[in-house]
Simulated scan of single mutants.
Amino acid sequence: MKIRLVPLALAALLATGCASTDAYTGEQKTSNATSGALIGAVGGALIGAASSSKSDRKKGLLIGAASGAAVGGGIGHYMDQQEAKLRQQLAGTGVSVVRQGDNIQLVMPNSLTFDVGSARLKMPAINTLSGVALVVQEFDQTDLRITGHTDSTGSRDLNMRLSQERAEAVASELLRHQVAVGRMNTTGAGPDQPIASNQTSDGQAQNRRVEIVLTPKG
């Protein structure tokens, strides 16, 4: 019974005092690094306990918890730092930064990036991508998945081709700023992943976008 309670006590200890205030929302939250460390600690504790003899089980549990916390918190902390740099670099550009676990999603609206029916980057997008490149060069342990999206107007073949060309245009601009081509993957999703209704002009405008998802190398 005591063995089963120790991971919970460790988790509670890690969580205590680890809540922080989100500078953008004003809300109290547990950082992704803390969440990763907590999960790693509990997992490591269980593995440590299971792999130790009965007499050394408590010691094995504590060692496993410590190593698990270090591994689990490392990725989260790395992505926390990258997220903060991206928010600072992209403030006021119109690009939204969305954190999803250990991934970071950048949503670039079409009003910033391309003219209607074009895959040629506009100057505001070129300037913005230079800032993105600065950050992702610094944090080189992440890969980039770049996806182009369109609304549903026009033929499907045209939209699929256009969305792919737009994703490739973004990747080419990042490559021009020395982001390694091996880190980037491009996809054209066409109209298949809408985030708003295509029945209104406002919804169509929201659906025309390029998303860059940064994921830890693994």
Rank of each mutant, 00 (worst) to 15 (best):
Y78C: 09
S96H: 02
S96E: 11
E83S: 12
G117R: 04
G74A: 15
S111H: 02
L90P: 01
Q105N: 09
Q82Y: 06
Q89A: 15
Q105K: 15
D115R: 13
F114E: 01
K85Q: 08
S118N: 09
G101R: 08
A70F: 11
R99F: 04
Q89W: 01
N110I: 03
A119E: 11
S96W: 02
Q89G: 04
V97F: 03
Q100A: 14
V116G: 05
D115M: 09
F114C: 03
A70W: 04
M79G: 07
H77D: 13
G101M: 03
G117T: 05
K85T: 07
T93L: 07
G92Y: 13
I104G: 01
E83P: 07
D80V: 06
K85C: 07
L90E: 04
V98W: 06
G92K: 11
L86I: 05
R87Y: 02
I104P: 04
E83A: 08
L90C: 06
V97Y: 01
F114D: 02
D80M: 10
V107H: 01
R99N: 02
N110M: 03
G92C: 08
V107P: 00
S96P: 00
T113S: 15
A84E: 10
D102Q: 06
D115G: 12
S118Y: 13
Q105M: 07
S118P: 04
V97P: 00
A119C: 02
R87P: 00
L90S: 04
G74R: 08
V97N: 00
N110G: 11
R87H: 02
D80R: 09
Q81A: 15
A84S: 13
M79L: 14
Q105C: 04
T113P: 05
D80I: 12
G76T: 14
A84Q: 13
Q89D: 12
D80S: 09
E83N: 13
Q88A: 12
Q82S: 15
M108A: 11
A84F: 10
Y78R: 11
D80C: 08
G117H: 00
E83W: 09
H77F: 15
G72F: 07
V98A: 10
G73D: 09
K85F: 04
L86W: 04
F114H: 09
V95D: 07
G74V: 00
Q89F: 08
K85P: 01
P109L: 08
V116Y: 14
A91Y: 02
Y78V: 09
M108C: 10
G72R: 03
